[in-house]
Amino acid sequence: MLEVLPADVADLIEQGGVIAYPTEAVYGLGCDPDNNDAIEQLLQIKQRPWQKGLILVAGDYQQLTPYIDESQLTAEQLQFAKSKWPGPFTFIMPVKPGLSQLLSGSFDSIAVRVTAHEGVKELCAAINKPIVSTSANLSGQDPALSALSIKQQFTGIIAGLVKGELGTQASPSTIIDAKTGTILRQG
C-alpha cells in the first residue's frame, strides 16, 4: 500500500483509486466523486449498499457547488449551513440533477461537509474538488482509528494511505437536514 502526503494524492485519485485518509474523528475511505467506477469500487470494498448514499467532504464551500442544488434552498438555509463550516457538521442538501445516484443513493439529496481538518483540506485542494468520504471499515464494524488498522484491513485492496493525524473530535459529525434544520444524528 502506497503511503502519500495529502498534497501528493491527486494522481491516485485521478486514476480511479480508493484511498484511506485521516479525518476529524476516524479514518475515511474516499475517491473521486466524478468517477463511477471508483465509487463502485469503494462501495464494494466497504460492502455498503449504494442506496444509502455517501458523504462529500470539501476543503471549502465552492468545491460543493457542482453537487448541490442551491436553488432549492433559501438564503437563510444556506447561511445556516455556512455558519457551521468549516467544522464537524454534515448537511443533507438537495442534489444537483444529473449527479450519479451512487453518491446520493436512493435519495434526492446529498450529504456534504466543509472540513476544518488541515490534512483533508490539503487533499481536496490537491484534487480541486470534494472527496467521497465514508468511514474506513466494513459495513457494521467499528471505523479504523490508526494507520496500522488501515494496513491490516485494506493492504492490497486500496490504492493508498494518506499520511497524517486524526483530528481531536471524539465522535462523527452531526448531521442536519438543511431544509428543515432537523438534527438527524448528534455528533
Rank of each mutant, 00 (worst) to 15 (best):
Q15N: 14
L184D: 06
L103G: 08
R48T: 09
I150M: 10
G105N: 06
I176M: 02
Q47D: 15
P33I: 02
S104C: 12
D108A: 12
F89S: 13
L2E: 14
E3W: 10
P130S: 05
I39Q: 05
Q77A: 11
D108V: 12
L99A: 13
L145F: 13
R48C: 06
I39K: 06
K96R: 15
I68M: 05
L73V: 07
I157M: 12
P88D: 04
P66M: 06
G160I: 07
I55T: 09
Q101H: 14
Y21Q: 10
A170K: 15
V120K: 05
V162T: 06
I68G: 02
I19N: 05
K96P: 05
A144P: 01
K129I: 00
F107R: 15
A116Q: 14
Q169R: 13
A111V: 03
I176W: 01
T74V: 00
L102P: 10
G17D: 10
S173P: 09
P22T: 03
P143N: 07
Q62S: 15
K179M: 12
D8S: 15
E70T: 11
A38C: 03
Q15M: 12
G87H: 09
L54A: 03
D11G: 14
L138Y: 14
E3G: 09
V18H: 07
F107M: 07
V162Y: 07
C31W: 05
L73C: 12
A20K: 08
C31Q: 04
E14L: 11
A58E: 07
L148Y: 13
V26A: 04
I13M: 08
E118Q: 14
V132W: 06
